[in-house]
Structure formats: C-alpha cells, structure tokens
C-alpha cells in the first residue's frame, strides 16, 4: 500500500507519541541543563493592594527585567492582614518552580511575621534575596499644622497627648514613634489608618497632629505636608524632603535606623535546590541596577530613584534578622499602645 503524506498510521502514531513523550519528559531537564530558564512568563505575588508603592516599583523593575530575561511578568495582588495573606498564599499555594516570585515591602511584612502566628517561616519557606531599595521612615505634619519642628512635636507630646497617624500598628513607623516617645517622655497616641493615603489625609486634614510613613509617600505629597524628621539619615533624599533632621541627632537618642525596604523574594526550596534559577535571577536583577532604563522607568512614574539600591541575599538576611528582633522587642509595646 502506498503511504501518502498526511495519512496517520498506527506505527507513525506510536513513533510520534513516543517522541512526544520523550520530549515532554526530558525537555525541562535539557532546557535547564542548557541554562534556558526562564521559558515562560514569571508570576509575581504582591502582598499589598493594586496602585501602591510596591506595584509601582515592581513594574519599574520588571519592565527592565523582561528585556534581559526574554519573558513577561504577570502580577497578582493579595493584600490583607499586614502582608500575611500574600505571604501565606505564596508560601503554601504557589508552585516552587522558580516561576513564582514575591515582591515585598520587607519591613512591615517581616514585622507582621514576627508579631503574628503564621503558617510560613522566614527564611525557612521564603527567602528575600535582592533588596531593590529603601526609603527612610519620616514623621510629617499637614502644611497648615502649627507644629513646625520635631522638637515642637515632642514638646507638645510632653504637654498633651499627640495623635500620630500610622498605616498600621505592626509597621516600622509605629516602632519609631513609640521609641521616640519612650526616649523623650512624650505621649504619642498611634492611630492606624489602614494605608498610606488615609494616613496622609489624616495629617493633611488635621484629624491627627502628625503622621509617620515612608519618605516616598511624604515626598509625593509635595507642599501638602511638612516633613519634621527622619528615622534614618538619607542625604540622597534631603533635598526633596526639605532637609529634615535625623531623630537621633536632634534628641541624642539611639533609636534603630528605620526604613521601608523593598525587594525580591522566592521560595527557599527553589533558592537551595535550583541554582540555575537562582543565578539567572540574581544576575538579571543585579544587572538591572546598571541599566539606565531603570532610572528612566522610575522617572516616568515620578517615583524617587534616590533610594534605589541593590542589596544581595546577605543584606536581605540582615534586614530580616534585625527586623524580626526589633519587632519582637516592641511587640508588647505595640499591643499596649
């Protein structure tokens, strides 16, 4: 019988099936061996809502990374419980295959981990491996506030209860203001407003005497607010913030330097067992910092580029460790506040 093109025979089907199965079985390892990761889009989990600082900066990075890695990035947002929802979901329900990453607001989310009972462990389940930048924690008032300086804020706090808006209680800003109150004898009443926008509104409209958040948020509000002081001296931000003094330099205190860092994290299992994924991602993220396109991305969205700074896994491990210790030290005080 003459065999014609396009006719499916039993033997042909078996051959094609065997070849297909072989490709399906061995292709991933072959591709891995060839260092071809990634071969498909990478999913990014963010533990805060859409439209926040984490999304803005993550997209700046992925816009640069997509050219280097040759794949696109897809975002999913799981806000809630100070980052606990996003972290639990990432740790327990996303495949540990190198195609799922976490972009993190490190400090508040680590504080949540340290002060709550969670089903994930840091760094046992999730490892932060690349810090992308950090902005100092600052305290500020609305433009119409009678409070002009950090000293005046503390003096007011010695005469009466001063209300301070904060995003949430488990937050580096809260720890900063509680430390300042403890060191100076001022009476600060921390009020959680559940997010950057309502917190800023509280200070601007005078519902609270002041607010404590990241410099990035305060800077973005322009002349609507007046920054009184910073919990981490950051010369690179000084011009934009109006040269506010460092809290420790004003009061001679030794409050830990506080900032809100952002960075990339992945499943610890992937980090330990898939070195090719680890190397490829670390190299690409590291290279992004030297790419002028990254700065252009930040400028395009009017987000301060000054705080953008690479930190490797050792830097991240230090942040995680120090923040956990700090949060556990202040855990009771946060609850009592």
């Amino acid at each position: 019988m003459k065999r014609t093109t396009g006719t499916i025979t039993r033997r042909g089907l078996i051959r094609a099936g065997t070849a297909g199965a072989a490709v399906a079985l061995f292709a991933p390892s072959v591709l891995r061996a060839q260092g071809s990761y990634p071969t498909r889009n990478i999913n990014v989990v963010i533990a805060t809502g859409q439209g926040g600082g984490a999304e803005t900066t993550a997209r700046c990075f992925t816009n640069v990374l997509r050219t280097d890695l040759g794949v696109d990035f897809e975002f999913e947002f799981h806000p809630g419980a100070g980052g606990q929802v996003g972290y639990e979901l990432y740790a327990n329900r996303r495949d540990k295959d190198g195609y799922n990453l976490l972009y993190s607001n490190m400090h508040p989310e680590i504080i949540t981990f340290a002060t709550q009972e969670t089903t994930y462990d840091l760094p046992g389940d999730i490892i932060h491996f690349a810090k992308t930048g950090g902005t100092p924690i600052v305290t500020y008032v609305g433009a119409n506030s009678p409070i002009q300086s950090l000293e005046q804020l503390v003096e007011e706090g010695k005469k009466r209860t001063v209300t301070i808006a904060t995003s949430r209680l488990p937050h580096p800003g809260t720890i900063g203001m509680l430390s300042l109150a403890e060191a100076t004898g001022a009476d600060f009443n921390l009020i959680p407003f559940g997010g950057g926008n309502p917190t800023s509104m509280a200070a601007i409209t005078g519902e609270t005497d002041a607010a404590v958040l990241t410099a990035g948020v305060a800077i973005s509000l322009g002349d609507q607010v007046r920054i009184l002081g910073t919990f981490r001296p950051t010369p690179e931000f000084d011009a934009q913030m109006g040269n506010p003094p460092g809290v420790n330099s004003v009061f001679g205190t030794s409050i830990p330097e506080l900032e809100l860092s952002q960075g990339w994290a992945m499943h610890t299992e992937v980090w330990n067992n898939m070195p090719e994924v680890r190397e490829r991602l670390v190299t690409a993220i590291r290279a992004a910092f030297d790419n002028p396109e990254l700065k252009a991305q930040f400028e395009a969205v009017n987000y301060p580029f000054e705080g953008v700074e690479y930190g490797d896994e050792t830097v991240c491990a230090e942040i995680v460790q120090n923040t956990i210790e700090l949060a556990r030290r202040y855990k009771d005080r946060i609850r009592e506040s």
Binding site: Q50, T56, N197, M201, N302
Partner: peptide
C-alpha cells in the same frame, strides 16, 4: 491633594503615572 478617593481613582492614578 493628589490622594485618590477610591480604588478606581487609585488605579487611574497609577496608569497616569
């Protein structure tokens, strides 16, 4: 004041950024 009043306004703000 540049602060979004709702979720849609927040997303519009990001797009315009």
């Amino acid at each position: 004041i540049g602060v979004p009043g709702g979720s849609t306004a927040a997303i519009m703000m990001v797009v315009l950024q």
